[in-house]
Amino acid sequence: MDRRAALRLLAAGAAAGTIPNELAALGRTLHERLGHGMRVLDPHQDATIIALTDTILPATDTPGAKAARVNEFIDLLLAEWVEADDRTTFLTGLAGVDTRAHEMFGKDFVDGTPRDQATLLTALDDEAARWKEMPGDKRGPEPFYRRLKWVTLFGYFTSQVGAEQEEHYLIIPGRYDPCAPIPTSKRPE
């Protein structure tokens, strides 16, 4: 069956209620609720998360972490998913970014110039890479930045914006090509 036929069949299914509309509705409700404010992150923490995640995954020819609302997903995980001590660890790590920002350029992270912010993130990225290289019994707890980098990636690529516009994720590929050519460098739009 080709993709068009599959889509036709799916459209017919949707009319009969076979696509779980309730799940889509749940997503919309969640979205609206979160739009009114964060449940764990205070406005400053939220602004810091937005600045950090959007520096890690900025808007380029596709939207970045901010447009993908990665901050809202992080707030949801902090509110409902992580254990209490992990939440504390994460928020302490987040506050630590401002401490480093003050040491480095005398301001909160969000008030730094893009250059200030990139300099700090470069340092954090190097530290995370060094931590990864250390033997497991020698290194301390996972740096906040490494955890943030993972959740930024995950939150972005599992968002509709990240999946559809950046990854070109297709819910229904419609065919299997076992050995498809890819461009040697950046994929074109």
Partner: peptide
């Protein structure tokens, strides 16, 4: 068939698959 969820993408489940 209405119980099937194979085409529900990660952004439509609460924890995106976590």
């Amino acid at each position: 068939l209405s119980d099937y969820v194979e085409h529900v993408p990660p952004w439509q489940v609460r924890f995106r698959g976590l």
